[in-house]
């Protein structure tokens, strides 16, 4: 038996909007720790890892570990039927082949339940080691989204170069080239507006902008984004989900042949 009650239902709606274009089908894993997901995109270039900790739910009952295969597009369709202020409860029976999403309006005058069919998904789970990254950039998530969107109108790939001086996003395309440099800036009124660059050593990596743009669909989840890089390793683009956990996107770099 599984019953997870989330007061801030809009968080789950935003999570689905953030990942549904990247991943088609995925297993949601439920354990005493929380509600989580790990999935790769269809071309196995990017990976998304989501964690919503048990403590973040108003009620969290998970009698035994459960893995529920869901089509994210269908799940998104159902969650779109929940109001932004609704409380969302996820319910499932052990060994059942459906999951139920229950939506309660804030003043309890409307209660809906949507039952969705589960699916068997054969997915490999990757072990992601804890890594000390050579460069960690924290910046406003909207600024990062803006840069990715702007550069993708010029080129297909972005070179992200981080050094003590700042972080440079560069692209080239048929019509020309572009560079955007963000310097460390901590003299801001609100901490979420700061750009903070921690560097162990300079890093420069090339990525497909199409994926970066897809990751920025998580922007509504957090005011800030953290981009962690080490030479020749996948980048991690992380959006913290307030008091609940995170959504992390891993993207393999492009390399010279």
């Amino acid at each position: 038996m599984l019953e997870l009650r989330l007061l801030q239902g809009s968080l789950l709606k935003k999570v689905l909007e953030a990942i549904k274009d990247l991943v088609t089908d995925a297993n949601f894993d439920c354990s005493a720790t929380g509600f989580s997901l790990q999935a790769m995109d269809s071309s196995h270039v990017a990976l998304v890892a989501l964690l919503l900790r048990a403590e973040g739910f108003e009620h969290y009952r998970c009698d035994r570990n459960l893995s529920m295969g869901m089509n994210l597009n269908n799940m998104s369709k159902m969650l779109k039927c929940a109001g932004n202020d609704d409380i969302i409860t996820i319910k499932a029976d052990d060994g059942g082949d459906t999951v139920t999403f229950m939506f309660e309006s804030p003043n309890q005058d409307k209660i809906s339940d949507f039952e969705m069919k589960l699916m068997d998904i054969d997915s490999e789970h990757l072990g992601i080691p804890e890594t000390e990254y050579e460069a960690i950039i924290r910046m406003p998530s909207q600024e990062f989204a803006r840069i990715c969107r702007d550069l993708s109108t010029i080129g297909d790939t972005v070179v992200i170069s981080a050094s003590k001086e700042g972080v440079k996003f560069s692209t080239k395309g048929d019509i020309g080239s572009a560079n955007v440099v963000c310097r460390q800036n901590t003299s801001v009124d609100k901490p979420e507006d700061a750009t903070v660059i921690e560097i162990q050593q300079p890093v420069s990596l090339t990525f497909a902008l199409r994926y970066m743009n897809s990751f920025t669909k998580a922007t509504p989840l957090s005011n800030t984004v953290t981009v962690s890089m080490s030479n020749e390793l996948p980048v991690v683009v992380e959006y913290k989900i307030a008091e609940m956990g995170y959504i992390r996107f891993y993207l393999a770099p492009k390399i010279e042949e």
Binding site: M40, S43, H44, V45, A46, L47, E124, H125, L126, G127, I128, P129, T157, T206, A208, L233, P234, Y250, L251, A252, P253, K254, I255, E256, E257
Partner: peptide, 14 residues
């Protein structure tokens, strides 16, 4: 030319 690596080539399968 640049080649796109696969993410699964970086992390071991559990």
């Amino acid at each position: 030319p640049q080649q796109q690596r696969s993410i699964s080539s970086f992390f071991a399968t559990k």
